[in-house]
């Protein structure tokens, strides 16, 4: 098929937008392995910046992973059941609860962080522990888990499946465990990927909630951008990108749950 001129104009524009998004990432990754960024590539490639980043900031990486995993567990424990209840109930109260639960998307992280600090900042033990950051992350990520599970629940008639299970003798908890949860897998997976990705990259809340002893990866990044030479910031960014890359790829593969396709492969 012969393409029109407009196709190529559009394609060029799209490539330009892609370049805008990708070139800086590429530059930053390159800078992280360049001996001297000011002199450019000709100064040679090295992993020494990455190694230095590791010695300086390895603890932030582990803390970020710890918080992300803890955040995911909290989301699974409280978010998935909540999504189920919200899908079950269609009344006004349920909709109001849903509105409230997704409110942290609409309210800037800075405001949520301030609210947490003015309320619980006085409890020293709590304020100084990583759990303080965890609370912020759970609030911020919960809407994504809930929406993801809700989307899957609305894509199939889970009420009838439950009635089917009940007619076979399964009680409430049995149905929840053997029918609802397994059939929500796609949504739970997509939500989980989103939650971990967002938690690992969260800065707005975390910057306010962190202490010198509870620095996460993005906090460390901000730190290195402000106080270290460009190559270290770049190398650190490189480490971050490598960490988050598998998550983003998985998110592209599994992040958009579709309604289960009903393919009829063997008609009678």
């Amino acid at each position: 098929m012969k393409r029109s001129r407009i196709f190529y104009v559009n394609l060029a524009f799209t490539l330009l937008v892609c370049a805008f998004l990708i070139v800086p990432i590429f530059l930053s990754m390159l800078a992280g392995v360049t001996v001297n960024f000011f002199q450019g590539i000709k100064s040679g490639l090295t992993l020494s910046w990455v190694i230095e980043v590791w010695s300086l900031y390895a603890d932030t990486i582990f803390l970020s992973l710890l918080i992300a995993v803890a955040c995911l567990i909290c989301n699974l424990l409280i978010g998935v059941p909540a999504a189920y209840v919200l899908a079950r109930k269609s009344g006004r109260v349920a909709r109001m609860i849903e509105e409230t639960l997704v409110l942290p998307i609409a309210i800037p992280g800075l405001a949520i962080a301030l609210a947490l600090i003015v309320t619980y900042g006085g409890i020293r033990e709590f304020r100084l522990s990583w759990l303080f950051i965890l609370v912020g992350h759970v609030l911020y990520t919960l809407p994504f888990m809930i929406r993801s599970v809700l989307a899957v629940l609305s894509s199939f008639d889970f009420r009838t499946l439950e009635e089917g299970a009940a007619s076979l003798g399964a009680g409430f908890w049995k149905r929840f465990r053997t029918i609802i949860i397994p059939n929500c897998r796609a949504g739970i997976l997509a939500g989980s990927l989103m939650v971990v990705t967002l938690s690992v990259g969260e800065f707005n809340l975390t910057w306010m909630l962190h202490t010198p002893l509870t620095k996460t990866l993005p906090v460390g990044l901000a730190d290195s951008y402000a106080s270290m030479r460009l190559e270290i910031g770049s190398a650190y960014t490189l480490v971050f990108l490598i960490m988050i890359l598998p998550l983003l790829i998985a998110l592209q593969l599994y992040g958009r749950p579709r309604a289960a396709k009903t393919t009829i492969s063997d008609p009678e």
Binding site: L161, G164, S167, L168, T178, N183
Partner: peptide, 20 residues
Amino acid sequence: LPIESRNVGMVFQSYALFPN
């Protein structure tokens, strides 16, 4: 008694077969 205690067998219009 709720349905799960009545020992009935039920066939649904949409079959309600468990896709998992």
